[in-house]
Protein backbone atom coordinates (compact mmCIF):
# COMPACT_ATOMS: atom_id res chain seq x y z
CA UNK A 1 0.00 0.00 0.00
CA UNK A 2 1.15 3.51 -0.81
CA UNK A 3 2.04 6.01 1.92
CA UNK A 4 -1.00 8.09 1.05
CA UNK A 5 -3.81 5.98 -0.35
CA UNK A 6 -6.95 7.45 -1.88
CA UNK A 7 -9.49 4.66 -2.34
CA UNK A 8 -12.67 5.05 -4.35
CA UNK A 9 -13.22 8.62 -3.09
CA UNK A 10 -16.65 10.02 -3.78
CA UNK A 11 -17.62 13.57 -2.90
CA UNK A 12 -20.38 16.06 -3.64
CA UNK A 13 -20.96 19.78 -3.35
CA UNK A 14 -24.42 21.12 -2.56
CA UNK A 15 -25.98 17.81 -3.50
CA UNK A 16 -24.15 17.52 -6.80
CA UNK A 17 -21.93 14.49 -7.20
CA UNK A 18 -18.45 15.63 -8.29
CA UNK A 19 -15.97 12.88 -7.48
CA UNK A 20 -17.29 9.54 -8.64
CA UNK A 21 -14.70 7.14 -7.30
CA UNK A 22 -11.10 8.31 -7.35
CA UNK A 23 -8.33 5.89 -6.49
CA UNK A 24 -4.71 6.95 -6.27
CA UNK A 25 -1.69 5.93 -4.23
CA UNK A 26 1.08 8.39 -3.53
CA UNK A 27 4.37 7.34 -2.02
CA UNK A 28 6.77 9.70 -0.41
CA UNK A 29 9.45 10.57 -2.91
CA UNK A 30 6.94 10.65 -5.78
CA UNK A 31 5.43 13.55 -7.66
CA UNK A 32 1.99 12.95 -9.13
CA UNK A 33 0.15 15.33 -11.38
CA UNK A 34 -3.62 15.34 -11.69
CA UNK A 35 -4.72 17.09 -14.85
CA UNK A 36 -8.19 17.79 -16.04
CA UNK A 37 -10.46 20.26 -17.77
CA UNK A 38 -12.58 22.78 -15.90
CA UNK A 39 -15.29 21.17 -13.83
CA UNK A 40 -13.66 17.76 -13.78
CA UNK A 41 -13.38 17.77 -9.98
CA UNK A 42 -9.75 18.81 -9.51
CA UNK A 43 -10.41 21.39 -6.83
CA UNK A 44 -12.98 19.18 -5.16
CA UNK A 45 -10.31 16.53 -4.88
CA UNK A 46 -7.89 18.91 -3.15
CA UNK A 47 -10.53 20.33 -0.79
CA UNK A 48 -11.90 16.90 0.05
CA UNK A 49 -8.41 15.64 0.88
CA UNK A 50 -7.86 18.58 3.24
CA UNK A 51 -11.34 18.45 4.79
CA UNK A 52 -13.15 21.58 3.63
CA UNK A 53 -16.54 21.66 5.39
CA UNK A 54 -18.36 22.55 2.15
CA UNK A 55 -17.47 19.25 0.49
CA UNK A 56 -19.45 16.19 1.48
CA UNK A 57 -17.75 12.83 1.44
CA UNK A 58 -20.11 10.20 0.01
CA UNK A 59 -17.80 7.24 0.12
CA UNK A 60 -14.32 5.84 -0.02
CA UNK A 61 -11.37 6.41 2.26
CA UNK A 62 -8.05 8.19 2.41
CA UNK A 63 -5.47 6.26 4.36
CA UNK A 64 -2.43 7.98 5.78
CA UNK A 65 -0.28 6.80 8.64
CA UNK A 66 -2.59 3.95 9.41
CA UNK A 67 -5.84 5.84 9.63
CA UNK A 68 -8.64 7.10 7.46
CA UNK A 69 -8.17 10.86 7.53
CA UNK A 70 -11.62 11.63 6.09
CA UNK A 71 -13.15 11.85 9.54
CA UNK A 72 -10.50 14.23 10.86
CA UNK A 73 -10.68 18.00 11.18
CA UNK A 74 -8.43 19.93 8.76
CA UNK A 75 -6.03 20.96 11.53
CA UNK A 76 -5.53 17.34 12.57
CA UNK A 77 -4.82 16.35 8.98
CA UNK A 78 -2.32 19.20 8.74
CA UNK A 79 -0.56 18.11 11.90
CA UNK A 80 -0.35 14.58 10.51
CA UNK A 81 1.68 16.05 7.64
CA UNK A 82 -0.80 16.91 4.89
CA UNK A 83 -0.51 20.31 3.25
CA UNK A 84 -2.70 22.09 0.72
CA UNK A 85 -1.38 25.02 -1.30
CA UNK A 86 -4.58 26.88 -2.12
CA UNK A 87 -5.64 27.91 -5.57
CA UNK A 88 -7.23 30.97 -4.01
CA UNK A 89 -5.41 31.76 -0.75
CA UNK A 90 -7.76 33.38 1.76
CA UNK A 91 -7.33 36.91 3.12
CA UNK A 92 -7.35 37.19 6.92
CA UNK A 93 -7.14 40.86 7.95
CA UNK A 94 -5.32 41.96 11.06
CA UNK A 95 -2.97 38.96 11.32
CA UNK A 96 0.57 39.40 10.05
CA UNK A 97 2.20 36.73 7.91
CA UNK A 98 4.91 36.41 10.55
CA UNK A 99 2.40 35.78 13.28
CA UNK A 100 0.56 33.30 11.06
CA UNK A 101 3.70 31.38 10.11
CA UNK A 102 4.92 31.23 13.70
CA UNK A 103 1.51 30.11 14.99
CA UNK A 104 1.30 27.44 12.30
CA UNK A 105 4.77 26.10 13.03
CA UNK A 106 4.04 26.01 16.74
CA UNK A 107 0.76 24.21 16.07
CA UNK A 108 2.59 21.70 13.91
CA UNK A 109 4.97 21.04 16.77
CA UNK A 110 2.15 20.54 19.20
CA UNK A 111 2.71 23.73 21.17
CA UNK A 112 -0.52 24.55 22.99
CA UNK A 113 0.61 27.63 24.87
CA UNK A 114 2.00 25.68 27.81
CA UNK A 115 5.06 23.58 27.06
CA UNK A 116 7.54 26.24 25.97
CA UNK A 117 10.10 23.67 24.85
CA UNK A 118 7.87 22.88 21.85
CA UNK A 119 7.79 26.50 20.77
CA UNK A 120 9.90 27.58 17.79
CA UNK A 121 12.63 29.90 19.03
CA UNK A 122 12.88 33.37 17.48
CA UNK A 123 16.35 32.53 16.19
CA UNK A 124 15.34 29.27 14.56
CA UNK A 125 12.26 30.91 13.08
CA UNK A 126 14.27 33.74 11.57
CA UNK A 127 16.86 31.47 10.02
CA UNK A 128 14.17 29.17 8.55
CA UNK A 129 12.44 32.17 7.07
CA UNK A 130 15.54 33.76 5.67
CA UNK A 131 16.55 30.72 3.65
CA UNK A 132 13.13 30.08 2.18
CA UNK A 133 12.49 33.72 1.32
CA UNK A 134 15.65 33.74 -0.76
CA UNK A 135 14.66 30.67 -2.75
CA UNK A 136 11.28 32.19 -3.53
CA UNK A 137 12.78 35.59 -4.37
CA UNK A 138 10.66 37.26 -1.72
CA UNK A 139 11.78 39.99 0.63
CA UNK A 140 11.04 40.71 4.28
CA UNK A 141 8.58 43.43 3.45
CA UNK A 142 5.72 41.00 3.04
CA UNK A 143 6.12 39.56 6.54
CA UNK A 144 4.37 42.35 8.48
CA UNK A 145 1.53 42.41 5.95
CA UNK A 146 -1.79 40.80 6.79
CA UNK A 147 -2.39 37.26 5.55
CA UNK A 148 -2.74 37.47 1.75
CA UNK A 149 -4.17 40.97 2.09
CA UNK A 150 -3.44 43.04 -0.99
CA UNK A 151 -1.04 40.39 -2.29
CA UNK A 152 -0.65 40.08 -6.05
CA UNK A 153 -1.46 36.72 -7.61
CA UNK A 154 2.22 35.82 -7.71
CA UNK A 155 2.82 36.89 -4.11
CA UNK A 156 -0.08 34.78 -2.91
CA UNK A 157 1.18 31.65 -4.61
CA UNK A 158 4.73 32.19 -3.47
CA UNK A 159 3.44 32.73 0.06
CA UNK A 160 1.68 29.35 -0.15
CA UNK A 161 4.91 27.64 -1.12
CA UNK A 162 6.73 29.51 1.63
CA UNK A 163 4.25 28.06 4.13
CA UNK A 164 4.85 24.62 2.69
CA UNK A 165 8.60 25.05 3.03
CA UNK A 166 8.24 26.19 6.64
CA UNK A 167 5.78 23.47 7.66
CA UNK A 168 7.63 20.61 5.93
CA UNK A 169 4.69 18.34 5.13
CA UNK A 170 4.96 14.71 4.05
CA UNK A 171 2.15 14.97 1.54
CA UNK A 172 1.72 18.28 -0.31
CA UNK A 173 -1.20 19.05 -2.59
CA UNK A 174 -0.60 21.99 -4.91
CA UNK A 175 -3.95 23.15 -6.22
CA UNK A 176 -3.46 25.07 -9.48
CA UNK A 177 -0.44 26.77 -8.02
CA UNK A 178 0.55 27.78 -11.55
CA UNK A 179 -2.68 29.56 -12.43
CA UNK A 180 -2.35 33.32 -12.61
CA UNK A 181 1.43 33.19 -12.41
CA UNK A 182 3.90 34.77 -14.80
CA UNK A 183 6.74 32.65 -16.04
CA UNK A 184 9.27 33.99 -13.52
CA UNK A 185 6.97 33.25 -10.61
CA UNK A 186 6.37 29.74 -11.92
CA UNK A 187 10.12 29.20 -12.06
CA UNK A 188 10.66 30.44 -8.48
CA UNK A 189 7.81 28.31 -7.19
CA UNK A 190 9.05 25.26 -9.11
CA UNK A 191 12.58 25.77 -7.85
CA UNK A 192 11.32 25.88 -4.27
CA UNK A 193 9.24 22.74 -4.74
CA UNK A 194 12.08 20.91 -6.45
CA UNK A 195 14.33 21.74 -3.52
CA UNK A 196 11.84 20.08 -1.20
CA UNK A 197 11.52 16.95 -3.35
CA UNK A 198 13.03 13.93 -1.77
CA UNK A 199 12.31 10.71 0.07
CA UNK A 200 10.30 12.50 2.77
CA UNK A 201 7.80 14.27 0.56
CA UNK A 202 5.04 13.10 -1.72
CA UNK A 203 3.56 15.74 -4.01
CA UNK A 204 0.22 15.95 -5.77
CA UNK A 205 0.15 18.72 -8.34
CA UNK A 206 -3.30 19.62 -9.53
CA UNK A 207 -3.30 21.59 -12.75
CA UNK A 208 -5.19 22.41 -15.86
CA UNK A 209 -2.12 23.21 -17.92
CA UNK A 210 1.08 21.36 -18.63
CA UNK A 211 3.27 24.41 -18.19
CA UNK A 212 4.23 23.89 -14.53
CA UNK A 213 5.13 20.29 -15.33
CA UNK A 214 7.96 21.56 -17.54
CA UNK A 215 9.59 22.82 -14.36
CA UNK A 216 8.46 20.21 -11.86
CA UNK A 217 8.81 16.86 -13.63
CA UNK A 218 6.11 14.48 -12.45
CA UNK A 219 6.70 10.77 -12.00
CA UNK A 220 3.05 10.03 -12.72
CA UNK A 221 0.31 11.89 -14.52
CA UNK A 222 -3.41 11.18 -14.10
CA UNK A 223 -6.17 12.65 -16.19
CA UNK A 224 -9.37 13.47 -14.32
CA UNK A 225 -12.55 13.87 -16.34
CA UNK A 226 -16.02 14.09 -14.86
CA UNK A 227 -14.94 12.89 -11.43
CA UNK A 228 -12.98 9.83 -12.58
CA UNK A 229 -9.48 9.09 -13.76
CA UNK A 230 -9.58 8.27 -17.44
CA UNK A 231 -5.87 7.83 -18.02
CA UNK A 232 -2.80 7.33 -15.89
CA UNK A 233 0.81 7.01 -16.88
CA UNK A 234 4.20 8.63 -16.76
CA UNK A 235 5.18 12.09 -17.87
CA UNK A 236 4.41 11.15 -21.49
CA UNK A 237 0.73 11.60 -20.62
CA UNK A 238 1.36 15.27 -20.09
CA UNK A 239 3.14 15.49 -23.45
CA UNK A 240 0.16 13.88 -25.11
CA UNK A 241 -2.23 16.37 -23.47
CA UNK A 242 0.00 19.19 -24.60
CA UNK A 243 -0.85 18.36 -28.20
CA UNK A 244 -4.34 16.90 -28.06
CA UNK A 245 -5.85 18.50 -25.01
CA UNK A 246 -8.80 16.86 -23.29
CA UNK A 247 -10.86 16.62 -26.48
CA UNK A 248 -11.03 12.86 -26.65
CA UNK A 249 -12.93 12.76 -23.33
CA UNK A 250 -15.04 15.85 -23.85
CA UNK A 251 -18.44 16.62 -25.34
CA UNK A 252 -18.28 18.06 -28.82
CA UNK A 253 -19.13 21.62 -27.77
CA UNK A 254 -16.25 21.86 -25.29
CA UNK A 255 -13.02 23.54 -26.40
CA UNK A 256 -11.06 20.89 -28.22
CA UNK A 257 -7.51 21.85 -27.39
CA UNK A 258 -5.75 22.95 -24.28
CA UNK A 259 -5.85 26.67 -24.72
CA UNK A 260 -2.80 28.48 -23.41
CA UNK A 261 -3.67 30.28 -20.24
CA UNK A 262 -3.60 34.01 -20.38
CA UNK A 263 -0.72 35.26 -18.33
CA UNK A 264 -1.71 37.83 -15.78
Amino acid sequence: MADFEIKDLRASVEGKEILKGVTLGINKGEVHAVMGPNGSGKSTLSYALMGHPGYKIDGGEVLFKGQNVLGLEPDVRARLGIFLAFQYPVVVPGISMTNFLRTAINAQRGYDGKDKSKQVSPKEFRSMLKGELEVLHMDDSFLPRYINDGFSGGEKKRAEILQMAMLKPEIAILDETDSGLDIDSIKFVAEAVNRMRGPNLGVLIITHYTRILEFIKPDFVHVLVDGRFVLSGGSEVADRLETTGYSEWMEADEPAVLAKEEVS
Binding site: M50, P53, V91, V92, T103, A104, Q108
Partner: peptide, 16 residues
Protein backbone atom coordinates in the same frame (compact mmCIF):
# COMPACT_ATOMS: atom_id res chain seq x y z
CA UNK B 1 -15.75 29.19 6.99
CA UNK B 2 -13.14 29.95 4.35
CA UNK B 3 -10.90 31.81 6.79
CA UNK B 4 -11.31 29.09 9.40
CA UNK B 5 -10.55 26.35 6.90
CA UNK B 6 -7.49 28.20 5.64
CA UNK B 7 -6.00 28.67 9.10
CA UNK B 8 -6.92 25.15 10.20
CA UNK B 9 -5.34 23.68 7.07
CA UNK B 10 -2.04 24.90 8.54
CA UNK B 11 -2.51 22.85 11.70
CA UNK B 12 -4.03 25.61 13.81
CA UNK B 13 -6.89 24.38 16.00
CA UNK B 14 -10.40 25.66 15.43
CA UNK B 15 -10.40 27.58 18.68
CA UNK B 16 -7.06 29.21 18.04
Amino acid sequence: DEQLFYLMSRGITRNE
